[in-house]
């Protein structure tokens, strides 16, 4: 079962002797969706392009169902790529764009016409056949790009930050529409994004990248429950992270927090960050002194940002109303303080 699907093994890409990707290893089972999450410039797009064969890889291998793809040129790999800016052919109509991949497979016109019609139906663009792609809105272009990428029936489709430039409501609608289609077709998908919320909506598993390397990889729920390091936590959008002051008691490192002393798990590691999840902090008269800095709303949830003893700030999940500058008291159980390595090992 494990061999069905895509396997990337020890992949590295150097451009002009600068390493862009280093030792990338992961697998996706056929029919599943993997989200690749990482900041701009971390090598996400290069990874997709090297899988599709557009960027030559320096070392490593790429397998589909145990067969190496390296000897196949781009146009013979059967891997679809939906570009961030859609990359529609400006000199062709909607229909001609979608038909392009079918023409490359030398599918007879009558048959390809039917396929194009079906695909345009699927993406809700029936009637747009002879429209110039330059007259389309962002969402429409998006759907044409998807229909075009799906037309040659790729074994794997890769979406490179597909919803980047779209407003939130359109993004939500398109995610539903597009993933409805992809799920119904059972296509293996890689979805690149820098938005953790988007990643959680679309993917079974997630791969976190930073600086050309994999930071973390696994089921979304697992990765978010116990991130491997501080960079992963930040990529996942976890809110309250700070660098603690180190203390040494009886030869062991530890954190002396306002809520009590907590020992470090591995005293040899050089650098740590502290993660406290907003839902674990309570407003309570028995707590520690804090000052309200501002109120933020993330995905409709209210978080209050507070400065604790003037030394660090935390986000608190609460429905209560506080004014800026107001003094409140915050309570936190020591076991809810998570200590993470600052960098990847």
């Amino acid at each position: 079962m494990k061999s069905e699907g895509l396997r990337v093994a020890g992949l590295s890409v150097h451009l002009n002797e600068t390493p862009i990707l280093s030792d990338i290893n992961f697998e996706i089972r056929a029919g599943e969706t993997l989200a690749i999450l990482g900041p701009s410039g971390c090598g996400k797009s290069t990874l997709l392009k090297s899988i599709s064969g557009l960027v030559p890889i320096t070392t490593g291998d790429i397998f589909w169902n145990l067969q190496s793809l390296l000897s196949s040129p781009v146009h013979k790999r059967g891997i679809g790529l939906m570009f961030q800016n859609h990359a529609l052919f400006p000199h062709k109509t909607v229909q001609e764009n979608v038909r392009f991949g079918l023409e490359m497979k030398k599918i007879p016109k009558g048959q390809s016409d039917d396929a194009v019609r079906e695909l345009l139906d699927l993406v809700g663009l029936r009637g747009y056949e002879s429209r110039s792609v330059q007259t389309l809105s962002g969402g429409e272009s998006q759907r044409v790009a998807l229909a075009r990428a799906l037309a040659p029936e790729p074994k794997l489709i890769m979406l490179d930050e597909p919803f980047n430039a779209l407003d939130r409501s359109l993004r939500r609608r398109l995610i539903e529409e597009i993933y409805g289609i992809l799920t119904s077709l059972g296509i293996t998908t890689i979805h690149v994004t820098h938005d953790s919320e988007e990643a959680s909506q679309v993917a079974d598993s997630v791969l976190l990248m930073d600086n050309g390397k994999i930071m973390d990889h696994g089921e979304f729920s697992e990765v978010i429950k116990s991130p491997k390091n501080a960079i992963s936590a930040e990529l996942l959008g976890l809110q309250t992270l700070w660098k603690p002051k180190l203390e040494n008691k009886n030869g062991l490192h530890g954190l002396n927090s306002p809520w009590g002393y907590k020992e470090f798990p591995e005293p040899t590691a050089s650098s740590y960050k502290v993660l406290v999840r907003p839902e674990n902090i309570k407003v309570d008269p028995a707590g520690v002194e804090a000052v309200v800095l501002n109120n933020v709303y993330i995905s409709g949830q209210k978080l209050v940002k507070c400065s604790v003893l003037d030394s660090f700030s935390v986000h608190v999940k609460t429905d209560e109303e506080f004014s800026i500058g107001q003094s409140i008291k915050l309570l936190l159980n020591l076991e809810d303080i998570e200590i993470l390595l600052e960098h990847a090992e």
Binding site: K49, S52, G53, H75, L81, N85, F89, M104, A149, P152
Partner: peptide, 18 residues
């Protein structure tokens, strides 16, 4: 010219000449 449109054609099965 959008270089990505050329790359898109390659991923859709067109060789460099096409």
């Amino acid at each position: 010219i959008d270089f990505e449109s050329e790359m898109a054609a390659r991923t859709l099965g067109a060789n460099s000449c096409t």
